[in-house]
Design a binder for these strands. Sequence first.
DNA 1: CAGAATACGGAACTAGCGTTCCGTTTGTCA
DNA 2: TGACAAACGGAACGCTAGTTCCGTATTCTG
Lengths: 203, 203
Amino acid sequence: MSATVQPMRADARRNRQLILAAAAQAFAEDGIGVPVDEIARRAGVGTGTFYRHFPTKEALFEAVVLEHMSEVVAEAARRAAAVAPGEALLDFLTYLADQGATKRNLVDALAGAGIDVESRAAHFKKALEAQLSELLTRAQARGEIRDDVTLGDLIGLVMGTCQYSNHGASQRRMLSVVYDGLRPSGRPDPSSDSSSEDRPAFQ
Amino acid sequence: MSATVQPMRADARRNRQLILAAAAQAFAEDGIGVPVDEIARRAGVGTGTFYRHFPTKEALFEAVVLEHMSEVVAEAARRAAAVAPGEALLDFLTYLADQGATKRNLVDALAGAGIDVESRAAHFKKALEAQLSELLTRAQARGEIRDDVTLGDLIGLVMGTCQYSNHGASQRRMLSVVYDGLRPSGRPDPSSDSSSEDRPAFQ
DNA sequence: CAGAATACGGAACTAGCGTTCCGTTTGTCA
DNA sequence: TGACAAACGGAACGCTAGTTCCGTATTCTG
């Protein structure tokens, strides 16, 4: 499988990108239900062309999600590098929350449809979790985060705030509550006051 | 519109219940995608019978959701009545979290499909929110809950913990973090220790 | 610039699912 | 118990959306 990818024809490469972009947008806007025809139309190609590039609609989902995850992982790694563990962790989580909120429709739709993106995205997921896990462990060792909280809890809490960030709920305030709750009991917010309205105490 | 419901025939009444029960189970297990045929099969009736009872598949969704919501509202009201506001609020929220976790698939599926259950369920939703709102206001007046938190935040936070209560995340621990975060800064947990019980009771 | 390989477009095919129709069965009431 | 209305079952219909096919257009190579 050394698979020297023989170069695609120029128009083919361009169309592939157009389809991916159109799909990402369409899924985010209208959910997973968008017909293939609609995606093709948005990309300005025919359905035949679509199926030349992706063997199936589900394959397109995968491609879109993988592309997105790889971006997230890269950006997250960049953020995790420099700062002190506690701060870095919250920064990391905040970034994830932003991403989650933005692409919520997409992720929801995929999960809701029971599409097994997990297996293909496992690599990226592992990478993310590894980074988060290290930050969490260090932050806990320093007493900056409750000891009983697990990696899964962390992810669940942050992603949870993405699900309902409308209907009069502010994701900023919800995150602020979560971050307060993550500190060990009796340990006040180390930075500014926590009664912030629309300004999270970190950033 | 005094609508004296002339009594249904015995078999009809029975079948209607069978369909509702089968539907609730089917939606919870397999999502909203289950074909009408499958629901009918589970209920042990034909599709013709199905459509005799519900004019459309969506009407069935509504019926299922409304039934569930009316149960939740009734039980929630019962719990909210007796205790002190702060405690009552958390008890109330915990009950909602339980329900949300149990019926997650159903609610997800409905929301994901963009079905307008809101308009029909508006009455129940209002009732729930009214009760919650009063508890929240009272608890905030007593300084037991952060002042900046809104009703929407509260609901979002609690429902958020329902979304990811697997994959190594414990809903109990997540709720515990949220409840800690809801207290005004520097106010320790008034009740027992806040460390995890390892009895998730659900997963 | 010509020929061949690659890619394109969209009509046509197929499968699944919601809904309707109608001949048959069952419950109810006198 | 007999007759009639109510309810049942499941075959059939039509629509939507995923996929395939093939004649046409475009790009690359010598």
